[in-house]
């Protein structure tokens, strides 16, 4: 399993691995927001937590179709399925690798981009914390979506359509926590709900993802 994780990380960092694309996308989206809503600092400050969450979610979503598709195309997925590793474990590791290469950089970049959006001083810690808790769920749910659509032509668009509704609870609680934190309200409930969703997702989704991947491999 560790070998698989290391390989996925290695592939992401090698040329053509696409590491950093999600981060660049996150930056671009954040920069585009003031262009679309106007440069008013007060407006930007109000919407900053939501924009950062939405940007992170979209950046996560965009990198999902590479998550399993590359292994599918070159046949590695067949070989992994016949390997002694449980497929559930393989997918959990793939989700972890996705999080480490996409989710974690987004978490670290969010406070920096918060400056661009005039985020309230109280908000920086909360946006970082809520993203840190929430992004693993995004990666795991996304892995399920990727496993659902892995063999399909035009899978990318369908993947977004399938995964977005599943992202709704995570987005609501995550953005809510960041928003309340930025406004100086209590964040415990939202953060606990977010953590609950992440924990439940990490516990259950590998099984769902492995089940659909087995169907797709046959």
């Amino acid at each position: 399993m560790i070998a698989l994780l290391l390989r996925d990380l290695q592939l992401a960092f090698r040329a053509g691995g696409g590491f950093g694309l999600g981060l660049a996308f996150f930056l671009i989206v954040t920069v585009m927001v003031p262009f679309s809503v106007g440069p008013n600092s007060a407006t930007l400050g109000t919407i900053a937590p939501g924009v950062l969450w939405l940007g992170a979610l979209l950046a996560c979503l965009l990198s999902l179709d590479r998550l399993l598709a590359l292994d599918w195309e070159d046949g590695s997925l067949d070989l992994l399925a016949t390997a002694p590793l449980p497929l559930e474990g393989v997918l959990a590791v793939k989700a972890l690798a996705h999080w480490m290469t996409t989710g974690l950089p987004l978490v670290l970049a969010a406070p920096v981009l918060g400056v661009l959006l005039n985020l309230a001083p109280d908000g920086f810690a909360w946006i970082t914390l809520s993203l840190l808790i929430g992004t693993p769920a995004l990666s795991m749910i996304g892995t399920f979506g990727a496993a659902l659509t892995v063999g399909l032509r035009r899978g990318g668009l369908l993947l977004s359509l399938l995964v977005m509704p599943l992202y709704v609870p995570t987005l609501i609680f995550g953005a809510e926590a960041a928003r309340r934190g930025a406004a100086g309200f209590a964040t415990e409930t939202a953060l606990l709900m977010l953590a609950g969703i992440t924990a439940g997702t990490l516990a259950c989704m590998p099984f769902a993802a492995a089940a659909v991947l087995r169907v797709n491999l046959r």
Partner: peptide, 22 residues
């Protein structure tokens, strides 16, 4: 199977060692 299951970005040794570890 028909496809080689290789990672083009990794070297021959790395490819082989990965599967050995798995």
């Amino acid at each position: 199977g028909h496809s080689d299951g290789l990672k083009l970005g990794l070297t021959v040794t790395e490819n082989l060692r990965f599967w050995a570890q798995i």
